[in-house]
C-alpha cells in the first residue's frame, strides 16, 4: 500500500504517541481536523494501524507482577499451509502475547505471559509441546525489561539537564 506524505507523517506521530488529540495532530501536520480523522480511519480500516496498546510496566504494580517467557519452537511445517496453521493454533491461546516466524536455528518465537513460573511452565508442557507439529521447545524466562518496542523502561536520560534559559 502506497501512502501519501501526510499519511506517513500521521503514522510517525501516532507511533510515538497515539493519545494526541486529532486537533493537535491537525496543527502538527497543517491539515484540517476532518482530514486527519479521515486519514486515521483509512489507515485503521486497512489495518496499517492495527491497535493502540499502552506500554505498561506491570512489575511496578503490586499483585500484578507477571512472568514472561520467550520460547524457541521447532515445528514440522505442513504441506500447503506451511507454518501458518501451527502458528494459528499457538496464537489463539490468550497466554500467548506474540508469535513470530523466524529465520535461523528455530522456527517460531513465541512469547508467553503468566502469573507465575509454574503457570507458564504448565502452559509450555501441557499446551504448547503437545501440539502435533511441535517438535521441540526451549523456554527462556525474562528477568528484567530494559527496553520494549523502542521505549526505554527506566532510563537515566529522561531528565532535562539543560539550563532554563540560554541564548
Amino acid at each position: 500500500m502506497k501512502l501519501t506524505k501526510e499519511e506517513l507523517e500521521i503514522l510517525y506521530i501516532l507511533e510515538e504517541n497515539h493519545r494526541l488529540s486529532t486537533g493537535v495532530i491537525a496543527k502538527q501536520t497543517q491539515l484540517s481536523e476532518e482530514k486527519v480523522e479521515e486519514i486515521i480511519k483509512k489507515l485503521e480500516e486497512n489495518k496499517v494501524i492495527v491497535s493502540y496498546p499502552a506500554i505498561i510496566d506491570w512489575s511496578k504494580v503490586e499483585g500484578q507482577e507477571n512472568v514472561i517467557a520467550m520460547i524457541e519452537v521447532n515445528v514440522t511445517p505442513k504441506r500447503g499451509v506451511g507454518f501458518d496453521e501451527v502458528a494459528e493454533r499457538i496464537y489463539r491461546f490468550p497466554e500467548v502475547s506474540s508469535v513470530y516466524l523466524m529465520s535461523g536455528a528455530f522456527d517460531l518465537s513465541v512469547t508467553v505471559e503468566g502469573k507465575s513460573l509454574k503457570e507458564v511452565a504448565t502452559f509450555v508442557s501441557e499446551k504448547l509441546s503437545t501440539i502435533d507439529s511441535v517438535v521441540s521447545t526451549r523456554t527462556h524466562f525474562i528477568l528484567k525489561k530494559y527496553k520494549h518496542d523502542g521505549v526505554i523502561i527506566e532510563g537515566k536520560e529522561n531528565k532535562d539537564r539543560r539550563m532554563v534559559v540560554s541564548p
Binding site: R162, V164, V165, S166
Partner: peptide, 16 residues
Amino acid sequence: FDVAAQMENVISLGVG
C-alpha cells in the same frame, strides 16, 4: 536566566 532559574514548576520556552 537568573530569575527563571530560581523558580519551580517553570515551563521553559527559553532554551536555545
